[in-house]
Design a protein around this nucleic acid. Structure first.
Lengths: 352, 352
DNA sequence: TGCACTTGCTTTATCGTTAAAGCACATTAC
DNA sequence: GTAATGTGCTTTAACGATAAAGCAAGTGCA
């Protein structure tokens, strides 16, 4: 019943070599396609390896080569809450697919508990469990991230980190994108009295998106009729921002939410108040990680290419690990404006 | 400017030992608190280790101990649906926190494509990169999962796998839960003409939830007035199921969706048709991974304790790795019925 | 005083892999 | 015909950590 090509015990290179009748070193060279090994032996070794189901021991290889064959994806726990699950999944997908192309494992370090006086992810790096790290931090300042990125170990950050300007990072132009989507409301839909609901202001994205909003209203001389309310990226914050306005709500004809979750919360609140979107008020979000596509009306938003950011970041990380290409320290990817119904643009007859 | 306790190069146990003036072996025994080492030396070694920032090399340790110090979280069928992301994140959180308690790394293997003739996650195990694996597969039969779970390596599955009865797994009672929520509609809300929208029928959860629905309607003699429609767990499927009924829709007064995403899609479709929920039709979902809380009305659903399932599964995995406690091969966790408005139960004045 | 036992280290060996050096034997060069 | 050059392997050593065995020096006991 049992497949006899299935190894009962772990197969070492030694076992493959024994089967062929050479030493382990010769087998190693054979599998590495060394010119010093005859074709005949190479074929024999490869056949034996396949037959026995040989897979190199990662520990042996790591020890010998001083390479773990793994990269770490580091998620400070604050990030989990602030960015949604979808963002993280996109990042994971991107990192995984590039890592896979390089036969590299992905190690996810998500718990920053100070287990032994060192943050978990610092231990990961110091123990050489990973050759480098992708860090998805949201906070403006995170001491651990700072230490890590300045430790000399290969680290690539996803996001914008003006305070860590020497670090290698991949992000988007939050300021420009936020300005663009705000100007869409102003120029295309003629909205003039705008509200902005920010993310938590200790997050760089929140700071930047607010700056883009302010630049847009200032450029169109609408600063007097506009207002900024602080939120925290949660749908409750979006709801509360709208409900908290009370009768002031009628003073606005457009709301720029700093992310889609808040836009969703705000949309529900507006509906519950009998305000119709986009007729009475236009709203827009930011991110396009899934939710904004599903609401009624669909939320006009900025698509953040999370998976591509992760792919680019991972490729940069491999460059760093291999010691090649210094390249620019910060890279910015283009974003797309996704026009749906919540701003006043027509539906593309998506529904039946 | 630079902190002089920061090691410039990698610190080996050898370096710690040299500083104290003993051999690496003695230092190793000192850190392991061996009774054969004097207290004085132990203190000196520990102090030196701290001073130099010594962290044991995972490769060296893995090779010597034949333990990788890592477990793999394997996700064969990468979730495409947006809210499948939440499920995965809950699982990741649960696995991570237990692994963290044991000073174990978590390796995420999500790519099912066969790089060298072996699925990526089979290589992970065979290369001894991980000491065991948690597998979250939804499919009824997955050849790779089957091979993996029968390879003799420590593997714990999350979900129900009747076809892999010898495997260790942790799941919930989908049949019972589905029956309960269906009976809630029947007994509490007097619904008698029920529709069930299933998941993809090659998923065990879909099969089980349908079975629970059928058991409930049969027990109440409502089989004649009930119908089952096949879906695929996506919100589009929920929408299409509702729209596809055409004028038959009026024949139903309750819909049991096999998950929340479809319930959400169905809810939107019903609204667009001018059908009010729960007045005209009661609906319920399944999962409670976040979405069902956010809709209006909130969707009554079954809370699947994904994070706890993952925690339990990971603890079982460590038992297997350590060779202790055979325990039951399949474990089932309790679920909770979460009553919201979509079934007709009162809102708990959650909103302002 | 002599022998066993304890204490506290050091030496040795091993995990699996692979670069580098070593070493027969065959081939070519002049 | 002897030296240089190839060819195709084997031997050696090292990566870092740590059990196990070894071995001095000190202690206890008769």
């Amino acid at each position: 019943m049992s497949d006899n090509t299935q190894p009962r015990t772990r197969v070492r290179l030694r076992d493959v070599a024994d089967l062929v009748g050479v030493t382990a070193a010769a087998a190693s060279m054979a599998l590495a396609d060394s010119p010093r090994i005859s074709d005949k032996t190479k074929r024999a070794v490869r056949a034996a390896a396949t037959q026995l189901g040989y897979v190199p021991s990662s520990a042996g290889r790591a020890l010998r080569s001083q390479r773990a064959g793994a990269i770490a994806l580091i998620v400070p726990n604050t990030t989990q809450h602030v960015f949604g699950h979808s963002y993280f999944m996109h990042v994971l997908t991107g990192v995984s697919s590039v890592a896979n192309e390089r036969d590299t494992q992905v190690l996810v370090s998500t718990n920053p508990d100070e287990a032994h006086g060192l943050a978990a992810y610092e231990r990961v790096m110091r123990s050489k469990s990973a050759d480098g790290a992708i860090v998805t931090s949201a906070a403006v300042t995170d001491l651990n991230v700072e230490r890590l990125s300045q430790s000399g170990l290969p680290v690539v950050l996803i996001g914008n980190f003006p305070y860590l300007s020497t670090s290698v990072s991949v992000g988007i132009d939050d300021v420009g994108a936020s300005r663009s989507i705000t100007e869409h409301l102003i120029e295309v839909h003629g909205r003039t009295r705008l509200l902005h609901v920010t993310g938590p202001m200790d997050h760089q994205t929140a700071i930047d998106r607010r700056e883009g909003f302010l630049a847009a209203v200032a450029a169109h001389d609408l600063a007097d009729a506009s207002r900024v309310v602080e939120g925290d990226f949660s749908e409750e914050a979006g709801r509360d921002a709208v409900l908290g306005l009370g009768r002031d709500l009628t003073g606005f004809d457009g709301i720029v939410f700093a992310n889609d979750d808040m836009a969703f919360g705000g949309l529900r609140a507006l509906k519950s108040l009998g305000v119709s979107v986009p007729q009475d008020i236009s709203i827009v979000g930011f991110d396009d990680f899934g939710l904004s596509r599903l609401t009624t009306p669909g939320i006009t938003t900025v698509r953040v290419p999370a998976e591509r950011m992760a792919r680019v970041a991972t490729e940069r990380l491999f460059d760093l690990i291999e010691g090649s290409k210094p390249g620019p320290s910060h890279q910015e990817l283009a974003v797309t404006l996704v026009l749906r119904e919540s701003c006043g643009c027509e539906s593309k007859a998506d529904d039946a």
